[in-house]
Design a protein around this nucleic acid. Structure first.
Length: 652
RNA sequence: GCCGGUGUAGCUCAGCUGGUAGAGCAGCGGUUUUGUAAACCGAAGGUCGGGGGUUCGAACCCCUCCACCGGCACCA
């Protein structure tokens, strides 16, 4: 009989009869491993304990202690257990596909009636029964035709399509627990009882297109989360509550930052408090840009369609533009304009004024560009996804051999901005040439290499996303991680030889010939609206002092202090601080509470004692302690604290 | 845009099988002069998202539109 040689993680190897299962391998090592085994890694692939091994390889037996494997199996089996529960309750429901996702799984069902939130409770209860039954799991490899016929008989075209999509060299596996059957690639636990019955929860039901294609039927998706034990599930649910507490829409109302209303869906009405944040951030970005050698411009909002036709956007994005039609009384033709959805074509117009020399390059042209896009209604989300927004946009016009240097400079600037704003960690995604593209292979080679060595020079690791670049050039995306571990994609850097071509941008080279510049699209924050939303959630509304909408509230304790309060506020304002007086007829407790809820970082309380001493009593947000100090000292100290990171003495 | 849900006072939310809308907080008036996360009393506050319909009668039932929420799709 043929044998296979299996190598264990400790380097030892043993021979087994070909066709040995991982379960038997585990048993051959020890009784306890046999009992604890849940699956195995075979040459890095996650395999079921029951699958025969036919070839030599490296093997590692997984137990519940191996988190990645254990969670994958738990979530995977729960997806099936849920599908079975659904089909036991509603036998006419067709199961389609149910993968493991971050923190859990989902399963998509085809059913005429919608699932209700109450149904989720029913399904959960049935799932617990299935888990309690400890039904053994069984799998079989079927011939493709048999599997197709099986689902055709049962009127499930979705499964038929899935089987047809399985590559010819891969087996078609069927899976059972109890009498319930599903198509599944595995691997699985040994029986349903291995799933922790108290560490999962069904979260929500939502529509989802079959195979993610909006031209295909909409199915009903049920989402679940699952962990190894109750404690981990509770921790996850707590994190979700934490995220809800930080929701920028809720904090925006509580801190009186902005509002939105029906008459302008997807657009922000900034209140004085919110606008303070916006202006502080914009002032900061403007200083950073100037320091980094950018010039700032400003370009029109309403632009004739001819420019969008020339840039190519009219063809591709017309439905997503706000169209502005002007029908002047004596005009022969109606003018059709679009609110600008982006700034680049306008920036090329500025570039094209006058003749540019190679000596002018690189030309770094920035704009806090106010853009409007008619986003689909379902895409809108607070101030994070809006129809009117302002980008911290810039385009760098440069020669081919300047790309690498500009890319490196940009990453430096971006890293410095993110650090100043309190985000120490960011990740780079590098997207390379897609299948459909313009330009020669040599130029793609050159530009991709330039970006790669620019990243390498910064020493920052990056993740490669092959084939995901724009049709005209490669791009970098920058993702940062917030205080509760969520990732946000913000910055971008794209190399574009196409738009200068379309819009006729040139420069005069050293030899007197006319050349095409490259255009580098880049943004650090993305949009102010979205970024401020992220800042609010990251800081739970407790923004750093220099960004806080109201930095100081001066609160009176007795009405006899009102005049002195006004004097303190005036002095703070003269020192450049955003300060307000609170001389309402309320107890100090009430004022402290209200301004704490409003996330004001510093409260100065003024009673008769402070009036007499010309002092203030300072209390910081969330801090029970107070500190009494002379007014002059407080002014001096707060003025320094209010400096933005780039203005502090330590900053060069 | 698609699926599902939601829309009642400034905010948070009650309101039964259809019978003319209610609380807390905020705001307003008064009392209180207060020492670090909600003082007390009082009066007021509503096109029940918009429009249409059914009904003797609609916050509630039906149709339609809008917005918001959760997903999906989209994100130059």
């Amino acid at each position: 009989m043929a044998s296979v040689t299996l190598t264990f993680p400790d380097g030892n190897a043993r021979d087994y009869d070909a066709g040995v299962t991982p379960a038997a391998v585990a048993a051959s090592i020890s009784k306890s491993l046999e009992k604890k085994a849940i699956s195995a890694m075979l040459d890095g692939r996650h395999v079921d304990l029951q699958w025969p091994i036919e070839h030599d390889g490296a093997i590692a037996i997984n137990t519940m202690q191996d988190d990645d494997a254990a969670l994958e199996l738990i979530r995977h089996d729960l997806a099936h257990i849920m599908a079975r529960a659904v089909q036991e309750i509603w036998p006419d429901v067709r199961a389609t596909i149910g993968p493991v996702i971050e923190n859990g799984w989902y399963y998509d069902f085809d059913r005429a009636e919608p699932f209700t939130p109450e149904d989720l409770g029913l399904i959960e209860a049935r799932m617990r029964e299935i888990i309690a039954a400890r039904d053994p799991v069984r799998t079989e490899i079927w011939l493709r035709d048999r599997a197709v016929a099986h689902y055709e008989d049962r009127g499930n075209p979705f499964k038929v399509e899935l089987i047809q999509a399985i590559p010819g060299d891969e087996p078609v596996r069927m899976y059972w627990h109890g009498d319930w059957q599903d198509l599944c690639r595995g691997p699985h636990l040994a029986h349903t009882g291995q799933v922790p019955a108290d560490a999962f929860r069904l979260m929500s039901v939502a529509g989802a297109y079959w195979r993610g294609d909006s031209s295909r039927p909409m199915l009903q998706r049920i989402y679940g989360v699952a962990f190894k034990d109750r404690k981990a599930l509770d921790a996850h649910l707590t994190m979700l509550e934490e995220a809800a507490r930080r929701d920028h829409r809720k904090l925006g109302r509580e801190m009186d930052l902005f509002h939105m209303q029906e008459e302008a869906p997807g657009q922000v009405f900034w209140h004085p408090n919110g606008w303070n944040i916006y202006v502080a951030l914009q002032d900061y970005m403007r200083r950073k840009q100037r320091a980094a050698g950018y010039v700032e411009v400003n370009t029109p909002q309403v632009v004739d369609r001819r420019l969008w036709e020339a840039s190519g956007h009219w063809d591709k994005y017309q439905e997503h533009m706000f169209i502005v039609e002007v029908d002047e009384e004596h005009a022969r033709e109606k003018a059709v304009n679009a609110l600008k959805p982006m700034n680049c074509p306008c920036h090329v117009q500025v570039y094209n004024q006058g003749l540019k020399s190679y000596r002018d390059l690189p030309l770094r042209m920035a704009e806090f560009g106010s853009c409007n896009r008619y986003e689909p209604s379902g895409a809108l989300h607070g101030i994070m996804r809006v129809r009117g927004f302002t980008q911290d946009d810039a385009h760098i016009f440069c020669t081919e051999d300047q790309i690498e240097g500009e890319c490196a400079r940009f990453i430096d600037m971006l890293a410095s901005v993110y650090a100043d704003l309190g985000f120490d960690r960011f990740d780079i995604k590098f997207s390379t040439r897609p299948e459909k593209r313009v330009g020669t292979e040599e130029s793609w080679d050159y530009v991709e290499n330039a970006l790669e060595s620019a990243i390498a020079a910064t020493g920052h690791p990056f993740e490669l996303d092959l084939g995901e670049g724009a049709f005209y050039g490669p791009k970098l995306d920058f993702k940062l991680t917030d205080a509760i571990g969520r990732e946000w994609q913000l910055g971008t850097f794209q190399v574009d030889p196409n738009l200068p071509e379309r819009l006729g941008a040139t420069y005069v080279a050293a030899d007197g010939s006319k050349r095409r510049p490259y255009m580098l699209h880049r943004a650090i924050l993305g949009s102010f609206e979205r970024f401020i939303g992220i800042l609010i959630e990251n800081y739970e509304g407790k923004l750093p002092f220099w960004l806080a909408p109201r930095q100081v509230v001066v609160a009176s304790i007795v009405s006899g202090a009102d005049a002195y309060v006004a004097e303190v506020v005036a002095a703070l304002r003269a020192a450049g601080l955003r300060a307000e007086a609170d001389t309402r007829n309320e107890k100090i407790n009430y004022k402290i509470r209200e301004h704490s809820v409003g996330k004001v970082p510093v409260i100065l309380a003024i009673g008769q004692r402070e009036v007499d001493e010309r002092s203030v009593t300072l209390r910081r947000l969330g801090d029970r302690a107070t500190e009494s100090l002379p007014l002059a000292d407080a002014l001096k100290q707060l003025r320094i604290e209010a400096l933005a990171p780039d203005q502090r003495p330590s900053a060069a």
